[in-house]
Simulated assay, not measured.
Amino acid sequence: MGQYSLDRPDEPQEHRRLDLQHEMWLLTFNGELHLSKIPAMKNSILDIGCGNGVWTQAMATAHPTSHVTGMDITPPATAQRSNVKYVQANAEEPWPFHGQFTFIHARMLVAVVRDWPTLLKQCWEHLEPGGRFELSDLVPPVHAAESEWDNDTSPIIKWATAVQATWRTEGLDPTVISDLDKTLEQLGFVNITHSRLRWPVGTWSNDEKERKIGELCLLNFQRIHESAGHRMLLNKNSNISEDEARNLSNDGIKDFTENCCSKRFFFDL
């Protein structure tokens, strides 16, 4: 897993943003922490890319007889529950444990994982027979439901397209989440299912739950832009200046904030 494009998860502002993002996932899953069916008791659970540990801790609370391990390159320093353990590790490198898990969970990794075959192979090798693996993520980029704006004439989509181009120079594939089935099947995974969901941006949806998600989604990505909107466009291979990156990011978040309802922006999940 690569370096964080955003602030580190142990920094206060990013910690709060990850809590907010966790609330978005809870709303999306109707209050559930996951969609997979797992036994009610005595599970061994792994949370890949655990960030600030918000899902790890919540899962340990919901399953007090289970043991939950959170793995990240910058995991929390301490666990708040006795059935939680944090491990500092890169999930794309050999894992520092040999046990198997009942349930492996991963969320929001599209912007950090380069070697998906290696990561998924290790998931397979560390799953108990009959175990479950669940991956929840965005499918970039942001879209506009108003089709005339679903292109680079919208500054936020122009920014998002530029971010994806930068990701590709770093070995990241922004479309990989939609194309993992073959790799999973080759490893031996069966009963692969998909839940096609979306996050609206702002309060344009007629659905009450989606309006709440949309409020949080707008705030979440405003915070991302504040902390790293221009940095996500810059690396050693960038062909734009820092000022150009800032202007592109500022135009994008202005469009995102002011036009989210008129253009009906949304993210596929």
Rank of each mutant, 00 (worst) to 15 (best):
Gly2Leu: 14
Gln3Trp: 13
Ser5Arg: 12
Asp7Thr: 03
Arg8Val: 09
Pro9His: 02
Pro12Gly: 00
Leu33Glu: 07
Pro39His: 08
Met41Arg: 14
Met41Ile: 13
Gln57Gly: 05
Met71Asp: 00
Thr74Tyr: 15
Ala79Gly: 12
Tyr86Ile: 12
Gln100Trp: 03
Phe103Thr: 08
Leu120Phe: 08
Leu127Asn: 01
Gly131Met: 04
Phe133Arg: 01
Leu135Met: 12
Leu138Gln: 02
Glu148Ile: 13
Asn151Asp: 14
Ile156Asn: 01
Ile156Cys: 09
Trp159Glu: 06
Trp159Arg: 07
Gln164His: 08
Ala165Asn: 09
Leu172Ser: 05
Leu172Trp: 10
Thr175Phe: 12
Ile177Cys: 07
Ser178Trp: 06
Leu180Phe: 09
Asp181Glu: 13
Thr183Pro: 01
Leu184Thr: 10
Leu184Ala: 11
Leu187Trp: 11
Val190Ser: 13
Asn191Gly: 09
His194Tyr: 15
His194Gln: 13
Arg196Phe: 13
Pro200Trp: 02
Val201Cys: 11
Ile213Tyr: 00
Arg223Gly: 06
His225Leu: 08
His225Asn: 07
Ser227Ala: 14
Ala228Val: 09
Leu234Tyr: 03
Leu234Val: 08
Ser238Ala: 15
Ser238Phe: 10
Ala245Cys: 00
Arg246Ser: 05
Asp251Gly: 00
Asp255Lys: 04
Lys263Gly: 02
Asp268His: 11
Asp268Gln: 12
